[in-house]
Simulated scan of single mutants.
Amino acid sequence: MSQDKFKLVECPRDAMQGLHDFVPTELKSEYLNLLLQVGFDTLDFGSFVSPKAIPQMADTEKVLASLDLSKTSTKLLAIVANLRGVEQAVYHKEISYLGFPFSISETFQQRNTNSSIEQSLITVEKMLDLCAKNNKKAVVYLSMGFGNPYGDEWNYEIVEKWAAILVSKGVEILSLADTVGISTPAKIKAILPPLISKFNHTEIGVHLHSTPTERFEKIEAAYDSGVKRIDSALKGFGGCPMAADDLTGNIATEEVISYLNSKDEELNLNMDNWNEAMRLSGKIFG
Rank of each mutant, 00 (worst) to 15 (best):
K218Q: 15
E160W: 00
L142Q: 02
I182N: 10
I188F: 04
M144K: 01
G145F: 01
N82Y: 07
F100I: 09
R111D: 13
V171E: 06
F102M: 06
S103V: 03
P193S: 11
F146L: 10
E217G: 10
G170V: 12
D152T: 00
A177P: 01
Q88A: 13
L176M: 14
T179C: 08
L142V: 05
V90S: 10
K189C: 01
T184R: 04
T184I: 02
V90I: 15
I165C: 07
N114Q: 14
I173P: 02
L83R: 10
S168N: 15
V86E: 02
E94H: 05
D178K: 02
S105E: 05
Y91A: 14
T179S: 15
G147W: 05
T107G: 00
I191M: 07
S168H: 06
F100L: 08
E203L: 15
K189L: 09
A81M: 12
I122A: 12
L174F: 07
V167S: 11
N112C: 10
R215Q: 15
V206S: 00
I204G: 03
V140N: 03
E203Q: 15
W162H: 15
E106K: 09
A138V: 14
Y91F: 11
V124L: 02
Q88W: 12
E106F: 03
I204D: 08
C131Y: 04
I122Q: 12
G170A: 14
G151I: 06
M127W: 09
P185M: 05
I95E: 07
E125N: 13
K137G: 10
N135F: 04
L98C: 09
C131V: 06
T211Y: 03
G170H: 10
I219E: 09
H92S: 03
L130Y: 11
S120Y: 01
I188H: 07
H201D: 15
L166E: 05
T113F: 00
I158E: 09
T184N: 02
Y91D: 15
Q119R: 11
N135C: 04
T184E: 04
N112E: 08
Y150A: 11
K198A: 09
V140D: 00
Y97R: 01
S143Q: 09
T202F: 06
F216W: 13
Y91H: 14
V140P: 01
S120W: 01
G99V: 05
D178L: 05
L128A: 08
I104M: 03
M144R: 01
Y97A: 06
S143C: 06
S197W: 07
A132G: 12
L142K: 02
